[in-house]
């Protein structure tokens, strides 16, 4: 930029001394060039930061507006009352209709959303096509059991305070990938404040690296966090179960 400005000053000087009409024209042209540069810059920044997100994500409403607060208050086991582990240790995820029917065979109150739920789904036996904010791509293997049961992690760490929500948030679907905006995070620059702000591989790795530094037995990824395995590195201690050996990728990518 500075060179451009210098040049501009130089040109102005020349124009003043010589008063040459040709030079004057040139000077004006340079101004115009600069203006165009700024237009390009500002325009593309606006596109990148403001328009692109609007284009990339479509806004979808959940089929039924769900109130977590009411439900958490009504059940005994907190999140696990509905989002439970099956007998074989696998995680049930979003409840199926069969679970809801236990209480909602008939509408319990006057809430229009509940009435809609009973009418459209319970009576007709149609599963609710919930939009899952945290659904990961198919290539990702994630075990809730090892994180919740063994790692004693709280649901909030990854899912935030969803249990305190009174209404279902708008589901922003990435038009290209079909996954929720929650995976990349609300902030398009990839910045985050809380652990639940993003759910990308780097976010998994961050936590695992921290734990490893504390000497915990966890799966760790090679650092820097990328796809390059470091096959020659030996596990730091015999405690580290699955480490940065060449099979590390297949722990999470089956």
């Amino acid at each position: 930029m500075s060179t451009l400005d210098d040049k501009a000053e130089e040109t102005v000087e020349q124009v003043e001394t010589t008063k040459c009409p040709e030079k004057e024209q040139k000077n004006r042209a340079c101004g115009i060039i600069l203006i165009f540069f700024v237009i390009g810059l500002v325009g593309s920044l606006a596109v990148g930061w403001l328009i692109f997100p609007k284009l990339l994500y479509s806004q979808k409403k959940q089929p039924i507006d769900f109130n977590h607060v009411v439900h958490v208050a009504a059940v005994e086991d907190g999140c696990e009352s509905c989002h439970y582990f099956r007998e074989d240790g696998s995680f049930s995820g979003v409840p199926k209709l069969a679970q809801c029917v236990g209480c909602h065979e008939e509408a319990q109150g006057e809430n229009p959303e509940e009435l809609k739920f009973v009418e459209e789904h319970v009576t007709k036996g149609n599963e609710v096509p919930w939009l899952v904010y945290s659904r990961q791509p198919d290539c990702v293997f994630f075990s809730h059991a090892s994180h919740i049961k063994m790692g004693k992690l709280d649901c909030v760490v990854c899912h935030g305070h969803i249990g305190e929500s009174k209404h279902s948030r708008v589901y922003e679907e990435n038009r290209l990938t079909g996954y929720s905006r929650d995976i990349w995070g609300k902030n398009l620059a990839g910045l985050k404040k809380d652990t639940w702000d993003r759910m990308k591989m780097d976010d998994c790795a961050e936590c695992h690296a921290e734990l490893k530094a504390k000497g915990e037995t966890v799966t760790t990824l090679p650092w820097p966090i990328n796809w390059m395995p470091r096959p020659y590195e030996k596990p730091a201690s015999s405690q580290v179960r699955v480490n940065i050996q060449k099979d590390a990728c297949f722990v999470c990518h089956k």
Binding site: A29, I32, I33, L34, I35, F36, F37, V38, I39, G40, L41, V42, G43, S44, L45, V47, G48, W49, F52, L188, A189, G190
Partner: peptide
């Protein structure tokens, strides 16, 4: 001017996510 617009656009795009 046109080139400048493109360069400006490229710079802006690079600075966006």
């Amino acid at each position: 001017s046109f080139l400048s617009l493109i360069i400006g656009g490229a710079a802006g795009t690079a600075l966006s996510p």
